[in-house]
């Protein structure tokens, strides 16, 4: 088990404790207040709202550390301040705190089920998502032993393309033309060059446009169906070309893997229909 996996597991454990702390603090402190009142210690009941305030801060933290944010959970500390800043008597304060604690618990359940898990090794950019891993395994034979220069160039092209620097991506993809690479990789560079030029100058789809050959089929992530429109077929060529560059960069340039991991949400979008 790697160090990053251990850190993620310990984070998960910490988050579980924090999730339990939300209802525990918000209900618990109010109930302690009730017990103290029953024992005759009539402390201002407003003080026992700090459990709810703390619970809402923890809920907001749990919402903040998720890749998908929940604006309602994030704003609960503000509501806690608005609700509990005004002094209240015992009965109305108790009702308010219990209802607020119940709301926090419901929001916590909503956060867990509607806003997904906390960060994983994938969302933190430490490892590849399963569909990309599968694609990398598929292209392993084709790109093992590829020379580092075109592999690095492929990583540069992906990075520039994902940031919307289409002019630079077109230039970088075009500069590989003379280098010795596999025919499929050369075609991928040429296709990316063509698309990046089209995007840079907001041009219409060229006619005819560059396509992969039938012998490249084993490397293609998506096979364009005959029923696709010409525009969609054109788009699929780009998706396949960028994914082939990704495969080549991953296998041939280990030093560029952190940059490729930073682009994986973009690459995942290309892989998914």
């Amino acid at each position: 088990m790697t160090l990053s996996h251990t850190a993620i597991q310990s984070d998960r454990k910490k988050q579980q404790y924090l999730e339990i702390a939300v209802p525990l603090l918000s209900f618990g402190v109010s109930l302690i207040g009730v017990l103290l009142w029953q024992m005759g210690m009539e402390i201002n009941f407003q003080f026992f709202s700090f459990g709810c305030v703390l619970g809402s801060c923890i809920l907001a933290y749990l919402a903040w550390i998720r890749p998908k944010k929940d604006i309602v959970a994030l704003s609960t500390p503000i509501y806690a301040f608005i609700f509990f800043v005004v002094p209240t008597d015992f009965i109305s304060g108790l009702y308010l705190q219990l209802l607020y604690a119940l709301s926090l618990t419901l929001l916590l359940i909503r956060l867990k089920y509607r806003f997904g898990t906390c960060h994983t090794a994938v969302s933190r950019g430490l490892e590849l998502a399963v569909p990309l891993k599968t694609y990398i395994e598929k292209t392993c034979d084709a790109f093992t032993g590829i020379s580092p220069e075109p592999a690095h160039r492929a990583a540069v092209v992906i990075s520039q393309f994902s940031t919307g620097e289409y002019g630079q991506a077109a230039h970088a993809a075009g500069s590989v033309a003379g280098q010795e690479t596999s025919p499929a990789l050369s075609r991928a560079f040429a296709i990316v060059h063509e698309h990046a030029t089209v995007l840079e100058h907001s041009l219409a789809r060229p006619e005819p446009y560059l396509v992969f050959l039938p012998e490249d089929e084993s490397l293609l992530a998506k096979i364009p169906a005959p029923a696709y429109s010409e525009d969609r077929k054109f788009d699929t060529q780009l998706d396949n070309a960028l994914l082939i560059l990704f495969g080549a960069a991953w296998h041939g340039s280990e030093a560029d893997r952190p940059h490729l991991l930073a682009c994986q949400t973009f690459l995942l979008k290309l892989l998914n229909e």
Partner: peptide, 16 residues
Amino acid sequence: AKTVRVKLINENMIGK
């Protein structure tokens, strides 16, 4: 502005 497909828009393009 550059004309792009929705799929190409990703978090690396913030500010573009």
